[in-house]
Design a protein around this nucleic acid. Sequence first.
DNA 1: ATAAAATGATAGTAATACTATTAAATTTGC
DNA 2: GCAAATTTAATAGTATTACTATCATTTTAT
Lengths: 228, 228
Amino acid sequence: MERLIRNLKITINPKVYVKDPESSDLGKRLVEQGIALIDQQGFEHFTFKKLGDLVGSNESSVYRYFENKHKFLLYLSCWYWGWMEYRLVLNTLGASDPEDRLNKALEILTQPVELDMAFAHVDEVALNRIMVNEHAKPFLTKAVDRENKEGYFEPYKRLVERFAEMIGEVNGDYPFARSLASTVLEGSLHQHFLENHLPSLTNCKQPGSITHFFRGLVTSVLNSSEYV
Amino acid sequence: MERLIRNLKITINPKVYVKDPESSDLGKRLVEQGIALIDQQGFEHFTFKKLGDLVGSNESSVYRYFENKHKFLLYLSCWYWGWMEYRLVLNTLGASDPEDRLNKALEILTQPVELDMAFAHVDEVALNRIMVNEHAKPFLTKAVDRENKEGYFEPYKRLVERFAEMIGEVNGDYPFARSLASTVLEGSLHQHFLENHLPSLTNCKQPGSITHFFRGLVTSVLNSSEYV
DNA sequence: ATAAAATGATAGTAATACTATTAAATTTGC
DNA sequence: GCAAATTTAATAGTATTACTATCATTTTAT
């Protein structure tokens, strides 16, 4: 897999950047160091000035790649969900039984990312932490409808769609496959956040228990007739 | 109930404000108009200057009541969850059967707020919209741990705790009552958000279907042995 | 070697998030 | 009803942020 990975590139909607950061060394450093910076200081304290300094360049150079810091976060978010989709597909190809496939999907989508797969210059472990800590910020904005039209949420939508399909293959009569899929994806990030910051709001303290919790939910509702 | 309501006051941790807005006419107008302003323009475009102008006063007056706009949002959030707890308690007192009580709780916590109960100067319908559109912003910040220590999330925690207790009364063996409670609360706001802005990520388009979806989830998992 | 493109450095603007000061109005105590 | 205390209004000012514009320098492509 390692080899495969180095030759692959996550495709990002060109509208989220001014100039493709993948197209230059500076661009790649911006992504790499931007992830490190947001991971350390949080998105609120992240500025293009800091990022410029960090990569040994300056503010104006960063603006040549990204319109503003919100677009930068959108870029990371698109990358993350695109990468999750890739992981989901890769890891469920082998499972021919729908239940096995769904279980595998649940693992991929709810377990914390603990191994940096060194996908190019992206530290996926740090990026996963960013998603846990900032997950709602790409869409909780007044511009969400316009940005949706411009396609910035497509990677996330594709992932939900794929996951919902796997749910449908286990129980085609369940009428809330998409809601369940989006609840699990969002809820998983939220439970990881609670585990770190508001532990009294969760029972998931052991490694793997978030996956356990969501597997219980999904399995129960798909095997039950309670939803009618 | 109307009468009862007018004599009640939601208690807010004094640390979230500089001066209690309930203690003066200006303070009440700040809360009232602040809700209207955030509802219309979104929290990102909300400024104390705009709010000061709107109430016929100015920026510096607002600062005498709230330290900054984040604290203002925390105030609204505390008010909202305090009010939800009040509604939860009031509406579940009558139900002696644990399952009835849990069902009632699910309704209260997942249905959109559609009736302004005219609880003092707070428009609960608008406040509910704000919570749907900004729900994660009070806690998705680098200061979450400090703010947690200062007790700003107590109302939310109390609500989750109460809800988790009701879950425990239906099935005391279920090991994820808190996670389920926090998932339903957060997930409900999220599904309402998706319904409004990213409808392809949800199956909940009819009134009541979000409640229906979560009731299915909760009921299934509590009646199942899948979670073990 | 030259043109074109990318980057670096500097400066500047508008808006925001505050703080400080003082004057005016209102409330309160007596 | 008057003085004192408190609250509010008005103004000014600062630091930071989020940009935009300009131009010099370096790198790259042919």
